[in-house]
Design a protein around this nucleic acid. Structure first.
Lengths: 263, 263
DNA sequence: TCCACTATGGAGCGGTGTTCCAATACTGGA
DNA sequence: TCCAGTATTGGAACACCGCTCCATAGTGGA
């Protein structure tokens, strides 16, 4: 059982589930997924494993909680923060449209991986391990409300929402690797603009380019675009693609409100 | 280094990377992800860890190889095997259309999780860990060729293919949990039709239905559909949704060839 | 004052991935 | 045919992990 009431102060700040989760997130951020260890955690919190296990059942549960906390923070950001990206692509569209809100959620998660490179892996794990956990529903709910607001008929809510969520989580995950590289060196947003990100993409697209041309003609063909693409733009294009599918399929009267044919 | 030439027979079948990967897949299938242990592997192959490490660098590399082998097998199945599902939804469409081939690939992977419940987790992990590995390109290439065949302009190949691949892998993953349950009891295809699958979905949708109605109104609303939906049908609907987005966005002249407005 | 209960920290257990190394199987050349 | 020398093997040992168990300390109520 967990502590029920808050008690008087101790010499050191009392241990709590929140403090543990917070420490776990920091460890994940600074030391990577393999850095989150009960040993490291006990050292950081100046306690023993037993104390931690009184607040948390499992390492899995701890990972769940850490992921949930980060996702909640990412979803709680002011939607306007990410409006730039949305307006970047559709200046003519109402800024409060469900489409824009979906894009805002998507970018909220997309941007969260910059500080938390371990996020996509955990999201993917929890999606395929326990979809009914505490974190997947957060995302599903956020996207789903906007799908409903779009006017999608109720019978298709699940499919439409799933398509969006899966794309967002998948694409976010694919971009995790480079983000991890960028984050490992110095503060991410500084000038020195991703020297090793280039290096990394070089290696990746080189690896793809070196695949057997007979077996992988398509991949070799897109390897070039891979190197030049802008992550956020590409990501947004994918979200809009799914949005287009939803509106074209379920809102026959409103195709014009979605992305016009690309240039 | 790996063995270069095949040698004469030994008393026991010579150890080889193939034999190791094969054993790993069997262990994963029968004992789950936690069942793949170097100890279990050495016992099954009647050897020591050192011998295995001469053929395989890492446990990660072993998992990669196992995943790659299973994916290759799944993609190699006769496309007609899964045509049923495609025709189920669009009897009027040419059976060899790129759309149908994409659906066939999707169902190939979808069906593979029945025998290999660990697949989606590994796919998700490798997608977010090393997208340039040996398994992601296989899927990307297969889907990408059909995207190209659809007539999508080259500049959008990457986005369109990504959207499809991410949806397929994500949705496959989400369905992994129930499949795992179904597989754990007796042979999967037998009569006794998923007693515990129902049980499982009950628990899942019940858990969703019990979420705080104030925080999760949307999820509670779809929890009902969740229980009744047919996995394959739902999965197909998602694939078609993305396909519709692709054609509507990039092939303005051919919307009529894709899914008509649902009933 | 005593007691039941919450909460803590540490010793230690079983198990894991991995390394290291001595011993063996095998090969090509003398 | 024998003999280096390399390719391959099996097993002991290591460092580390998640986790359990337990003796103990703090706390509030009777």
């Amino acid at each position: 059982m967990a502590p029920r009431t808050r008690r008087s102060q101790r010499r050191t700040e009392a241990l709590s589930r929140e403090r543990i989760v917070e420490a776990a997130v920091e460890l994940l951020d600074t030391a990577g997924e393999s850095g989150l260890t009960f040993r490291a955690l006990t050292e950081r919190l100046a306690t023993g494993p037993g104390a931690i296990y009184w607040h948390v059942a499992d390492k899995d549960e701890l990972l769940d909680a850490a992921t949930g906390a980060v996702v909640a923070a990412a979803l709680a950001v002011e939607p306007a923060t990410h409006a730039e990206a949305a307006e970047l692509a559709k200046p003519a569209e109402s800024p409060d449209s469900p489409q824009d809100k979906i894009r805002a959620i998507a970018f909220g998660l997309f941007d969260a991986i910059e500080d938390h490179p371990w996020l996509p892996t955990q999201l993917a794990l929890q999606l395929s391990r326990s979809p009914w956990g505490s974190v997947t529903p957060q995302i599903f709910e956020g996207i789903g409300r906007q799908v409903r607001a779009l006017g999608v008929p109720e019978g298709h809510w699940f499919t439409a929402t799933s398509a969006l969520v899966h794309y967002i989580l998948g694409a976010t995950g694919q971009n995790a690797a480079n983000a991890a590289n960028a984050a490992n060196t110095a503060s991410a947003r500084t000038l020195a603009p991703d020297v090793d990100r280039e290096e990394f993409l070089d290696a990746a697209s080189k690896a793809w380019g070196e695949l057997d041309p007979d077996d992988y003609p398509f991949i070799r063909a897109v390897a070039a675009q891979m190197r030049e693409h802008d992550d956020r733009e590409q990501f947004l294009a994918g979200v809009d693609l799914v949005l287009t599918g939803i509106t074209a399929l379920h809102l026959p009267g409103e195709q014009d409100r979605t992305t016009p044919p690309a240039t």
